[in-house]
């Protein structure tokens, strides 16, 4: 968490008053400072004015498409954006993520889930090599020493597998699209070859998960990508 005592700033963008009310109430725990916007343009100017630490964005805005909002914000800021939307089709998720969103939650969602994601997003944005060791349940990943431990015992990973795990750890809690992962690990030439990714994920699972068939750490987001769970 932040060292100083300024609570993180949240910008909530949604045109539905009931959702705004509920989100405000849910998040007004004293941990956050909450700002609100009801349209795309309002969101853009609020982003500039308030410089939030996390943006919660609804895609179905009246004046412009949410994805466009993401794009425009990304032109000048890397603030984490969590998309909250009724749209559940993979295309929509993927395009939002590709445009720069960090995470995606489908309405209706549980508040606990939302808070976990917000925390994960904050952690990422605030992390500056402050937490080189990633801990989640029985999984321990020490990035500085390149060591992976499961239930205390070390696990041997291939270089590719490690790179993959590292990427996931760095973006822990956030969903990474297939394309994103492939591009970062294997390069653009491999973007259209998801089976490579699949195989490696599968191997990782077999090495890291207690029940590979019921993964607790590396979660598949069907049709979208993968996420390393950070809030175990």
């Amino acid at each position: 968490m932040r060292k100083d005592n300024n609570p993180p700033r949240l910008l909530i963008v949604d045109d539905e008053p009931p959702i705004q009310r509920f989100l405000r109430t849910a998040l007004d725990t004293g941990d956050y400072v909450i700002h609100q916007a009801e349209s795309g343009f309002a969101a853009l100017s609020a982003a500039v004015a308030t410089r939030p630490d996390v943006i919660l964005l609804d895609l179905g805005l009246p004046d412009m498409d949410g994805v466009e909002v993401i794009r425009r914000i990304r032109e000048w800021s890397q603030t984490p954006i969590i998309v909250l939307s009724v749209r559940e089709r993979e295309d929509d998720k993927v395009s939002a993520l590709d445009a720069g969103a960090d995470d995606y939650l489908t309405k209706p969602f549980g508040v606990a889930e939302l808070i976990a994601r917000i925390r994960a997003a904050l952690r990422r944005s605030l992390r500056q090599a402050e937490e080189p060791v990633f801990l989640a349940g029985e999984l321990e990943v020490d990035l500085s020493r390149r060591r992976v431990l499961v239930a205390g015992s070390e696990v041997q990973l291939t270089p590719t597998e490690y790179e993959l795990l590292r990427l996931l750890v760095v973006h822990a809690g956030k969903v990474l699209t297939h394309g994103f992962i492939l591009k970062h690990i294997w390069g653009t030439a491999y973007v259209e070859q998801p089976h490579v990714l699949r195989v490696n994920i599968s191997n990782l699972r077999h090495k890291l998960e207690k029940e590979p068939s019921r993964p607790r750490h590396i979660i598949t987001e069907p049709g979208v990508g993968y996420r390393l769970r950070a809030d175990y």
């Binding site: 699949r198 994920i201 019921r214 049709g223």
Partner: peptide, 17 residues
């Protein structure tokens, strides 16, 4: 239907999640 190569294990995992 957007078909892609998948592992059935993965499939089961998703469902269980």
């Amino acid at each position: 239907v957007r078909k892609e190569m998948c592992d059935v294990e993965d499939l089961a995992g998703c469902a269980l999640t």
